[in-house]
């Protein structure tokens, strides 16, 4: 098993958290709600997962509890941003602060304690015996298959092959028109932003149970923001989001390899590559996309609350 194989294996594991969170953000944004609180939600999810796994010694129960916490947060966020219609950017920033703060507060007694159980790899019977690819792709844990294959496929089918998906996209593009034809705008936005926060919280739990195994303050370190950036730089296409998620996982995994192999690059630069690439990927496609901007743009009604009286 050489180094490159190992790096790819870990980049798929590490990228999983970012991809899951960005799928959640994508769902939310597609229905027209900008959720900037992913960073805080991921922290909260990570803390929930570590506490649950230390008390129940079962990673699956921990993930279910994490989903529950995510649902509660989602309902609170949706009440603030969709029912009351408070400024979505401010609500998101507030959720970031609140999430990180609460996570550090309740996670303090658990800091540094290593999870007793984690997600075990589950090789797929025949595919995993292929020499390199089998190890990298088909010997992962179940969550990885869920994140990279099952959830995106489900979302694709629901969003682009059903009437319901068309309705959701209509709510994100033009809620007034959708409302005129009888689509329940508020209900759809409520549901999808909740689903988004659940996936965001789950991403934090996944990170604990699959790659980090222990909680510490500052564990998420901007990965939630990178997930939001991923939606932008994936240009609202799931495939691109997943591919760039793996790329970011790779950059995370490469973190210390440079120091080990004595590359002439300061380790600090390798550590900040994640953010540098996030900026580059956020800026350059926008320059390229200026000509065919219709194809690549964000949902038109993103971040604008829907007032029925303004219709």
């Amino acid at each position: 098993m050489d180094i490159a194989t190992n790096l790819l294996y870990f980049s798929i594991i590490n990228g999983g958290g970012i991809v899951l969170a960005s799928i959640g953000e994508w769902l939310s944004e597609r229905s027209g709600v900008l959720n900037l609180g992913i960073e805080g939600l991921m922290s909260l999810g990570a803390v929930t997962a570590i506490i649950a796994v230390l008390s129940f010694h079962n990673p699956w129960i921990a993930l279910i509890i994490t989903c529950g916490v995510g649902a509660i947060c989602g309902i609170i966020f949706a009440i603030c941003a969709i029912i009351i219609k408070a400024n979505q950017v401010l609500c998101g920033l507030a959720f970031t602060m609140l999430g990180i703060g609460i996570a550090e507060f309740i996670g303090k007694p658990y800091e540094g304690i290593i999870a007793t159980e984690h997600l075990q790899p589950m090789p797929i019977p025949f595919l995993s015996s292929i020499s390199t690819i089998g190890y990298i792709v088909f010997s992962q844990n179940i969550m990885v298959y869920l994140i990279y294959i099952i959830i995106p496929l489900t979302i694709y089918v629901v969003f682009f092959k059903t009437q319901h998906g068309l309705n959701v996209r209509a709510v994100g593009e033009n809620p007034e028109a959708a409302d005129a034809v009888g689509v329940p705008v508020t209900r759809i936005r409520f549901f999808y932003s909740c689903l988004g926060t659940i996936l965001g919280t789950l991403a934090g739990g996944y990170l604990i149970l699959a790659s980090v195994f222990t909680w510490s303050g500052g564990l998420i370190a901007g990965q939630g923001w990178i997930a939001i950036a991923l939606v932008m730089l994936g240009r609202y296409r799931l495939v691109y989001m997943i591919l760039s998620g793996v790329f970011f996982g790779f950059i995370t995994a490469i973190g210390f390899e440079g120091q080990v192999f004595n590359w002439p690059i300061p380790p600090v630069i390798l550590n900040s590559l994640l953010y540098i690439f996030a900026i580059i990927f956020a800026i350059f496609p926008s320059f390229l996309a200026k000509n065919n901007s219709k194809k690549w743009r964000a949902p038109a009604a993103l971040c604008t609350p829907f007032f029925r009286s303004n219709r």
């Binding site: 805080g40 603030c80 009351i84 219609k85 408070a86 400024n87 401010l90 609500c91 920033l93 507030a94 959720f95 970031t96 602060m97 609140l98 999430g99 990180i100 703060g101 609460i102 550090e104 507060f105 303090k108 303050g217």
Partner: peptide, 23 residues
């Protein structure tokens, strides 16, 4: 007492102020 409470207070302040300004 844990100093993470500052983050909670400021986050809560921001959230409630956002709601209050809308209401």
């Amino acid at each position: 007492l844990n100093n993470a409470i500052t983050l909670i207070i400021t986050g809560l302040l921001l959230l409630l102020i956002a709601i209050a300004d809308e209401l």
